[in-house]
Amino acid sequence: MATITFKDNPMTILGTEVEVGQKAPDFSVLANDLSEYRLADAKESVKLISVIPSIDTGVCDAQTRRFNEEAGSIDNVEVLTISVDLPFAQKRWCAASGLEHLQTLSDHKDLSFGKAYGLVMEELRLLARAVFVIDTNGTLVHVEYVSEATNHPDYEKAIAAAKEAK
């Protein structure tokens, strides 16, 4: 498993780390209207999953905005931002930000996504920062675990992977 820190403090990571080439694990999270979102039920499109510790921080805000901006220029891509923020907070943030090319989802209820992708920082009950791209066949084609949770991911690599995925 990757070593992940938060403000230079090592974190205990719960769950199973995923790798490029494997089938993307299913998960269940909550949409802003409290409905269930399951990967297995999602439409057949490329998925760029942007994982953040909390929407209310500067790096997480910037990451979410960056992927929203890029999403409009990528055909057949669904951008999902997942955190453990409550759906109400995510909805309020989206309304205030005016973002329209992505969906925010909450893993607060049971950490289904975080455990399936090896991202739960046990000490904080937050998700570590990461980016995943899943092709239309459900295969992981890009995986990035950001080693320091307060750092930015490699936006260019993730965007290139989403554009190349079929």
Rank of each mutant, 00 (worst) to 15 (best):
A2R: 09
L126M: 15
T16P: 00
A42L: 06
A116V: 09
K43A: 14
A161E: 03
D135S: 08
E144N: 07
L86P: 00
S54W: 01
I49Y: 04
V146W: 11
S112V: 09
I82L: 04
V20G: 00
F27E: 02
N151M: 14
L86D: 14
T12E: 11
R65H: 15
L80R: 02
A31R: 15
L111Q: 13
L105V: 13
A96C: 01
S45P: 00
L105P: 08
R66L: 10
S83L: 02
K43R: 13
L111P: 00
A116G: 04
D56K: 12
A96V: 03
V51W: 05
K7S: 07
Q90R: 10
V133C: 05
E17K: 12
A2I: 15
D8K: 14
Q90H: 12
T139M: 13
V77C: 13
Q90M: 14
G21N: 03
K115M: 11
E78Q: 15
V77L: 03
D61Q: 12
S50G: 03
I159Q: 06
T5S: 14
E78T: 14
V146L: 08
L39G: 03
L127W: 10
K115D: 01
T16W: 00
L111N: 12
L39R: 13
P25N: 06
I159H: 05
F6H: 13
A130V: 09
P87Y: 06
L124H: 10
V84F: 03
R38Y: 00
D75Q: 14
E164Q: 15
L48V: 11
A62D: 14
E122I: 01
A71I: 09
G138L: 11
H108P: 00
T3Y: 03
M121E: 05
F27T: 07
G118S: 07
Q63S: 13
H101L: 02
T81H: 01
H142Y: 15
E122T: 11
S73N: 15
Q90I: 07
A130Q: 04
P10E: 02
K109I: 09
K47L: 11
M11G: 02
L140R: 10
D85G: 05
Y117T: 09
K47V: 06
H101N: 15
L127V: 08
R38L: 01
N76M: 01
S147G: 08
L34T: 14
V141F: 05
D26E: 06
G21M: 07
T12L: 07
A40D: 05
I13N: 01
N68P: 08
P87T: 12
H108E: 10
V46N: 10
I82E: 02
T136K: 15
L48C: 05
L34I: 06
L127I: 11
D33I: 10
N9L: 10
A89N: 12
A24M: 03
S28N: 08
L119T: 04
V29I: 13
G118L: 09
A162C: 08
A158E: 04
K91E: 15
I134Q: 03
N9T: 15
I55P: 01
S97I: 05
M11F: 02
C60Y: 03
F88A: 10
N32Y: 00
K109M: 08
R125F: 06
I4A: 04
S97F: 03
Q63K: 07
L111C: 05
Y117G: 02
T139Y: 05
L140V: 12
R92Y: 07
N32I: 14
Y145F: 11
I159K: 08
D61P: 07
A161R: 06
N76Y: 01
